[in-house]
């Protein structure tokens, strides 16, 4: 089996939003839509205050609540574990967005561009009418991953088979790969670090891991 997951090393993330920009460039999302976001969080009370950058987006859950509630089967899970949307089936009811505990979904009812209602030439060239009025979210750049695999490349290792946000990350905070493959970058990484998954108690089996420390053995 294959289970694509993403790992975000919170120790490394500097909150530069390059992943966000790369995602927007790769997927031509409209202003206000960020499939890959980085939250800038203040934690604690003075004087014990920390600043944490938290990359978020669709967690490509193993048990996706969005897929469960979707009345149209537009949201579906692939055999590789990624959760995708068939924009031709979606009716834009928004139910999936309410079922998602990660606030990862967007619905744009009317296109607005960087400078108003008229698109710039580059925006017009890449505008996708099919994404208006329906749910949209991070795809793990699955078209890139599929194309890379077809060329014999390994997702998470070769940039041509890896999501744009991971390729763009300046600090190496984001890693992508097949968690069921013990030799994948994510499996090797997760084996030697302390990590958590967000809202795990909701039974969603999220495919997004957050690293917060080394494993204790490595500290000794």
């Amino acid at each position: 089996m294959t289970r694509y997951v993403m790992v975000a090393d919170l120790r490394r993330c500097v909150g530069c939003q390059t992943c966000t920009a790369a995602c927007k460039q790769a997927n031509a999302t409209l202003p206000g839509v960020q499939w890959r976001r980085v939250l800038d969080i203040e934690v604690g009370e003075f004087p014990d205050v920390s600043r944490v950058f938290l990359p978020t987006g669709c967690q490509h859950c193993g048990d996706p609540p969005c897929e469960e509630v979707c009345p149209t089967t537009a949201t579906y899970q692939r055999d590789d574990g990624s959760v995708q949307i068939d924009h031709d089936l979606c009716i834009g009811c928004g139910y999936c967005a309410l079922a998602c505990p990660y606030e990862a979904r967007y619905i744009v009812d009317e296109a607005e561009f960087a400078y108003g209602m008229e698109p710039m030439p580059n925006e017009a060239a890449r505008f996708d009418e099919g994404k208006i009025g329906v749910a949209q979210k991070c795809t793990f750049c699955i078209d890139v991953v599929d194309a890379g695999i077809a060329k014999g490349l390994k997702p998470g290792v070769h940039p041509e088979a890896t999501p744009a946000c991971v390729n763009a990350c300046i600090s190496g905070a984001l890693t992508f790969g097949d968690k069921d493959d013990p030799n994948s970058p994510v499996s090797k990484l997760l084996a030697k670090v302390e990590h958590f998954r967000m809202h795990e108690d909701l039974g969603t089996d999220p495919g997004f891991y957050y690293i917060w420390d080394k494993k204790p053995e490595d500290l000794m």
């Binding site: 939003q17 966000t20 409209l30 202003p31 206000g32 839509v33 960020q34 976001r37 980085v38 939250l39 800038d40 928004g94 967005a97 606030e103 990862a104 979904r105 967007y106 619905i107 744009v108 009812d109 009317e110 607005e112």
Partner: peptide, 13 residues
């Protein structure tokens, strides 16, 4: 207009 989401970063309108 878009309804729903959102974001916390300052670039998110």
């Amino acid at each position: 207009m878009k309804h729903g989401q959102q974001g916390y970063s300052k670039t998110d309108k």
